[in-house]
């Protein structure tokens, strides 16, 4: 995976495969702590303790449950390469929380990438799932919530291409205003 947005897409696909109806994504940058934190929270089927223990091992892929494979091990490797870590909490029947941290200034930290494309791709493909995106840094915070958008749209489907494009630009502006001057790659 070349950047964090591709990891994010991959991990959120686990949530959709787990039958989640609500998925909350938080991207938090703390300059004082030099830490970038990505949290993905879903209300999917969750995992029991036995599966949770095996889930970071790439060789536990099972063909019947599409929950696991290379996605989580690759994210874990990316986080650990940049002095961060990966934590997963899950309750069977309730949902899963995946949290990855990265040291912002670490030379091996992957760039944030195109977060807006990750979100719009998911929204176009899964219009019935509610997505929340929270961005936070010293610059302030930004919130995007599909339930709010759907309310405004009335009868127009959220995956209408024109709407998808509006959402992409809306999120791109959010990324620029929250992470500009915080994450080097946003300014270039």
């Amino acid at each position: 995976m070349k950047d964090i947005s591709l990891h994010l897409l991959d991990i959120i696909r686990n949530s959709t495969a787990a039958g989640a109806r609500n998925i909350k994504v938080q991207i938090l940058a703390d300059i004082n702590e030099d830490e970038l934190r990505i949290i993905i929270e879903d209300d999917g089927i969750g995992m029991d303790n036995e599966l949770l223990e095996r889930v970071t091992n790439p060789f536990t892929t099972t063909r019947t449950t599409r929950k696991i494979g290379m996605g989580i091990p690759l994210l874990k490797a990316s986080a650990e390469m940049s002095s961060g870590e990966l934590k997963i909490d899950s309750v069977k029947g309730k949902g899963t929380v995946v949290c990855a941290t990265f040291k912002i200034s670490h030379i091996d930290r992957p760039p944030l990438g195109d977060i807006a494309s990750t979100m719009t791709g998911l929204i176009a493909a899964e219009p019935e799932i509610e997505f929340i995106l929270n961005l936070n840094s010293d610059n302030g915070s930004f919130k995007f919530d599909t339930t709010e958008i759907k309310e405004k749209l009335g009868g127009v489907p959220i995956n209408e291409i024109e709407v998808v494009y509006w959402i992409r630009e809306f999120i791109e502006e959010g990324i620029k205003s929250i992470f500009g001057g915080v994450l080097d790659e946003i300014d270039s």
């Binding site: 709010e148 958008i149 405004k152 749209l153 009335g154 009868g155 127009v156 209408e160 024109e162 709407v163 509006w166 630009e169 809306f170 502006e173």
Partner: peptide
């Protein structure tokens, strides 16, 4: 961008 722009899109698209 503002959420209010969605109203325009809604009218046009409907």
């Amino acid at each position: 961008k503002s959420i209010a722009e969605l109203e325009e899109i809604r009218k046009r698209t409907l």
